[in-house]
């Protein structure tokens, strides 16, 4: 990528960024939604990712990494920064946010059950080590394959597979425990 000096370059940058935005916004959003427990925070962090990507877009080089690897690295860092900031100032738990937001409206029993289940699931994910949370979010949220996850996280592909299998089984067990307990 070069600077934005001529109209052709300017138009090119606009078009390229707009296309990438359409393609990656839902994937980045879903990745972050798996990592944080609030929709509002997800929107804030997703905005931060794309603003950083736009600011540094001229520095991005496709020879060094695919755009997917590049933007997911930004997203990972944004989430890490968010948790660092959170650690410095105590906040209320948002684990039940999905239900709390709509608690004034009567909800059908099965919807409520589903929401409770999702809350429990999010709570279980949040108790996993950060690296396993990331693998789960990248795999099931963003739909990356193991090779893309490996590149983004700097791991080997087989290592990603092993950790993913372990993380899912661990989650399953803790979820069943929470259900029964």
């Amino acid at each position: 990528m070069t600077g934005v000096n001529s109209s052709k370059e300017t138009r090119g940058k606009r078009e390229i960024f707009a296309e990438l935005y359409e393609e990656f916004l839902p994937r980045i959003y879903r990745y972050i939604r798996y990592r944080v427990n609030s929709e509002e925070v997800t929107e804030d962090l997703t905005s931060a990712v794309f603003e950083k990507a736009l600011t540094n877009f001229d520095k991005y080089s496709k020879e060094k990494a695919t755009f997917s690897t590049w933007i997911f690295s930004i997203a990972r860092n944004v989430v890490i920064d968010h948790y660092r900031t959170q650690a410095r100032r105590p906040t209320l738990s948002l684990e039940k946010s999905e239900i709390d937001v709509q608690s004034n409206e009567p909800l059908p029993a099965d919807t409520l059950e589903k929401m409770e289940e999702r809350d429990k699931l999010r709570a279980c994910i949040s108790r996993l080590p950060a690296e396993e949370q990331e693998i789960i979010a990248l795999k099931f949220g963003s739909g990356l394959n193991n090779r893309q996850i490996a590149r983004t996280m700097g791991l080997s592909e087989s290592n990603v597979g092993t950790r993913l299998y372990r993380a899912v089984r661990k989650l399953r067990d803790s979820f069943h425990e929470a259900e029964n307990g």
Binding site: Y21, P26, Y29, E39, E43, S47, L121, F140, Y165
Partner: peptide, 27 residues
């Protein structure tokens, strides 16, 4: 484990149209 992985995909949430549009305008 495979069955549970299905359950994990149910957590997927899509950004609202409003959010997508406002972020696009900002960018």
């Amino acid at each position: 484990a495979v069955e549970f992985a299905h359950k994990l995909t149910e957590l997927r949430a899509e950004p609202s149209r409003e959010f997508q549009e406002s972020l696009k305008s900002r960018l």
